[in-house]
């Protein structure tokens, strides 16, 4: 059967090109770097604190962890919050206060900020503690679209996206399954 190549189709170059309108150029340079407030993309935030940006990215990964997906997709998903916070003081407050709460909980439990809590499981416990807050619900709810609706990411899940422009699947494997047990 025709399978999908799940390796990234986004080379560094095409990523830089395709996302120029979405991301500050420095953000693209994040590919492969860790999630930190010092990263160029976090430093470029205009309204939210760099540490807040980095925390949001890590939080996004902890909410919807996919080990075959690079940080850049999570960065792309949360980047729009900076502009939103710039034009809407209420969202800015929701986010900064939400992140401050995460950090406070992390301090209580592990004596470090959320970003520095070493294990995913420990961070998930912190998130469980806030999952009913408007902050968490907003971030989780937005991510369902801002993360999974990135076309660059679909092939990594084996989803091929738009099909009419390619003549549908009538000659592209709509019935090519070949491993079912013969009855």
């Amino acid at each position: 059967m025709r399978e999908i190549d799940r390796r990234s189709r986004v080379s560094r170059r095409s990523f830089l090109h395709a996302s120029a309108t979405v991301l500050p150029a420095a953000a693209a340079a994040a590919t492969g770097l860790g999630i930190s407030a010092e990263a160029a993309w976090a430093q470029e935030a205009k309204t939210l604190k760099p540490a807040t940006m980095a925390t949001l990215v890590l939080m996004a990964r902890d909410i919807f962890p996919h080990d075959h997906i690079g940080d850049v997709f999570y960065i792309k998903a949360v980047m729009p919050y900076d502009a939103k916070a710039g034009s809407d003081p209420a969202s800015r407050a929701l986010i900064e206060e939400g992140v401050a709460r995460l950090d406070a909980d992390a301090m209580d439990r592990h004596q470090v900020a959320y970003l520095a809590v070493p294990w995913e499981q420990q961070r998930v416990e912190i998130l469980r503690g806030v999952e009913l807050t408007p902050f968490f619900r907003k971030i989780r709810g937005d991510l369902v679209v801002s993360l999974y609706n990135q076309k660059d990411l679909w092939a990594k899940f084996g989803y091929e996206g738009s099909s009419a422009d390619k003549g549908g699947y009538i000659h592209r494997g709509f019935d090519d399954i070949n491993w079912l047990p013969q009855s």
Binding site: E3, I4, I63, F64, P65, H66, H68, V124, L127, E131, R140, V144, V145, L147, Y148, N149, W154, F157, G158, Y159, G161
Partner: peptide
């Protein structure tokens, strides 16, 4: 459902590895 709607409708409100591991196997 395509991947975007699958993510939205699989278990609305859910998060974490139980949820994402299901989506990881979307093609299967």
């Amino acid at each position: 459902l395509g991947l975007p709607f699958m993510a939205a409708f699989l278990d609305p409100g859910a998060w974490g590895r139980s949820f994402t591991s299901a989506l990881d196997d979307y093609a299967n």
